[in-house]
Design a protein around this nucleic acid. Structure first.
Length: 570
DNA sequence: GCCTCAACTTAGCAGAATGCGT
DNA sequence: ACGCATTCTGCTAAGTTGAGGC
């Protein structure tokens, strides 16, 4: 997969090799393409910003064990403060959380502390907790000047550590701050919740930069674990985290050339799928009849991935993470088959926890053949058995690769999300509508995608109240309109028109908010919807892009803003 | 064919920043 | 200008993918 044109983002330093086309307003330059997985030729940065060292509690803030004051060693105290800061959270009451915390906390105690502290239930962190609450209040109540000082200091750190130079471009770094120590809280029912996430030191850090760059310096008196010069990868800094033993990275911001180009490429792959998706669908439908079990399973799984936008579903190590599944890892217990339901034939009821332990619940009528296959796959199995016992993501992706270059399971999610947005926009946008009504249409199209991808959120805590407030405003506006109609003034019609428009705007807002109660639009907007669709739509209907994308999003999608014309179709 | 691991994308949430009505 | 509501941003967990070792 190569692209002749390379998009060059704005903050470039020296436009080397800008001999290519810079046609009209597009900012497309022809630049040397790297081959063999080379990601850059020059990379210079200042290294990470470490978490501030532990600041011990003032002596009047006490910890009590079994009702008696006990002075903790600095190390044990630090870990205790992590717990104290979470005291108001429900999960500090969970058995698993407490058990994991206690086990890891003990490791940080002196032998004396270990012998004294033998029961977490006898530990009283409440004074510590109150202290932190007071601190947080004090921070909120700071004077403007003090707040301004902190802001300026943060800005200074950002300017110093938040940027790097990669191949003539000054680029923003995404996460240049090292994750501070604390207690791990996974999502959902995580077996490792409460474990101590340890402090990262310079000795844990691998720095990646180019040989000919000014290397980042470790803090005085420390050393990096390693400095390497691997230009086949995009990260600047990495370290191994102690909870799962996985590697964490510092990488570039989504606004960077390297991320933007990858994003562009992702959508181009999805557009190539568009050209052959009907062929692929015909194929998997045909495969439902295969005499080989593995092929039938593959075909039904692919059908789910395509129709329901399920994730691939890798196997996970039991006991290491929350019990969640995707398509290939579905178990018999996650499906219920209904020969007939609510007047529909062959209904499959899905109920499982997906990524981030978000529940997927759906009732879907399927083709008779799919239904019969599912019955076959579930025959003689226990609820906890795999539905697709002859399939995994590796087999599936190898098959997909044969169907189309660059095709993997996740491309279907991107494709179906983007094509849905495009179709919805084409269908429901009314060119006669005013701007707020058009934006409601846009949000509805976006919502259709979020529902497809099962992007949920907890309803905002203030939801009911905010709906009420809005309704109050609407009522007031209606009254105002009635008043205006009663009055006989020169400016009557002008005024009426204005109020009607304001009322309409409020009503649209109320509809939008209500429909969005449990739906999260952000994820699909950021990761699944080809931004060129939205930008073209804005241009076509005269909607300012700012109404659709905020500043961060406009930076991330700079490539698309540069290249999409009003007639772009996904 | 497994399995493991590195590298990268995708995800929801909490707290900070901003906006808006009074 | 102030206080609350809303939006934005940062954070980091949790996925997917492909390569490489046996």
């Amino acid at each position: 997969m190569t692209f002749e044109l390379v998009w060059i983002p704005k903050p470039y330093i020296i436009p080397v090799r800008s001999f290519g086309l810079c046609d009209r307003k597009r900012v497309l330059w022809e630049e040397e393409r790297y081959t063999d997985g080379v990601k850059w030729k020059f990379l210079e940065h200042k290294g990470p910003v470490f978490a501030p060292p532990y600041d011990p509690l003032p002596s009047n803030v006490k910890f009590y064990y079994d009702g008696k004051h006990m002075k903790l060693s600095s190390t044990a105290e630090e870990v205790a403060t992590f717990f104290a800061k979470m005291l108001d959270h429900e999960y500090t009451t969970k058995e698993v959380f407490r058990k994991n915390f206690y086990k890891d906390w003990r490791k940080e105690m002196t032998s004396e502390e270990k012998s004294k502290i033998t029961d977490l239930n006898k530990c009283d962190f409440s004074e510590m907790s109150e202290y932190f609450k007071a601190q947080s209040e004090a921070r909120k109540a700071m004077t403007k000047e003090d707040k301004q000082k902190i802001k300026e200091e943060n800005e200074r750190i950002l300017q110093e550590y938040g940027f790097c130079i990669m191949d003539n471009h000054k680029e923003r770094i995404a996460n240049f701050r090292i994750e501070p120590p604390g207690l791990f809280r996974g999502r959902g029912d995580h077996p490792k919740m409460g474990m101590l996430k340890r402090r990262i030191r310079p000795e844990d850090i691998i720095v990646n930069c180019s040989k000919d760059s000014k290397h980042p310096k470790p803090p005085p008196g420390t050393k990096w674990k390693e400095v390497r010069h691997d230009n086949k990868v995009t990260w600047l800094v990495s370290w191994t985290e102690n909870i799962q033993g996985s590697i964490k990275y510092i990488m570039l911001n989504p606004s960077s050339r390297i991320k933007g180009e990858k994003d562009w490429q992702k959508y181009e792959t999805a557009r190539r799928l568009k050209k052959c998706v009907e062929r692929i669908r015909a194929q998997y439908r045909d495969d439902w009849k295969s005499k080989e079990m593995r092929i039938r399973q593959r075909a039904v799984a692919l059908y789910f991935i395509d129709k329901l936008a399920l994730r691939a579903g890798n196997e996970k190590e039991e006991g290491e993470t929350a019990d969640t599944v995707g398509c290939c890892s579905l178990r018999v217990e996650h499906l219920t088959l209904h020969q007939e339901m609510d007047g529909q034939e062959y209904v499959v009821e899905f109920d499982f926890l997906g990524k981030d332990s978000i529940r997927y619940y759906n009732k879907v009528p399927v083709e008779k053949r799919v239904f019969k296959n599912l019955q076959l796959f579930m025959e003689d199995k226990e609820p906890e058995d795999d539905l697709f016992d002859r399939l995994n993501t590796s087999i599936l992706n190898k098959h997909l690769q044969e169907l189309m270059d660059g095709l993997t399971a996740k491309v279907f999610r991107t494709y179906n999300a983007s094509i849905t947005l495009q179709q919805q926009l084409n269908e429901i946008t009314n060119s006669e509508d005013n701007v707020p009504a058009k934006i409601l249409s846009y949000n509805r199209a976006n919502r259709a995608v979020a529902i497809l991808c099962n992007h949920q959120r907890a309803p905002p805590k203030t939801f009911e109240k905010s709906m009420q407030n809005l309704q109050t405003k609407i009522d007031a506006k209606k009254e105002q309109l009635a008043d205006a109609k009663r009055e006989l003034k020169m400016s009557k019609y002008l005024l009426e028109g204005e109020i009607e428009e304001q009322l309409m705007k409020l009503e649209v807002q109320a509809t939008d908010r209500e429909e969005n109660k449990q739906i999260a639009l952000g994820t699909s907007k950021l990761n699944y919807l080809d931004p060129r669709i939205s930008i073209a739509w804005c241009k076509k209907f005269g909607i300012p892009i700012e109404k659709i994308y905020n500043k961060t999003q406009r930076e991330k999608f700079a490539w698309a803003i540069d290249m999409a014309e009003k007639d772009f179709q996904f």
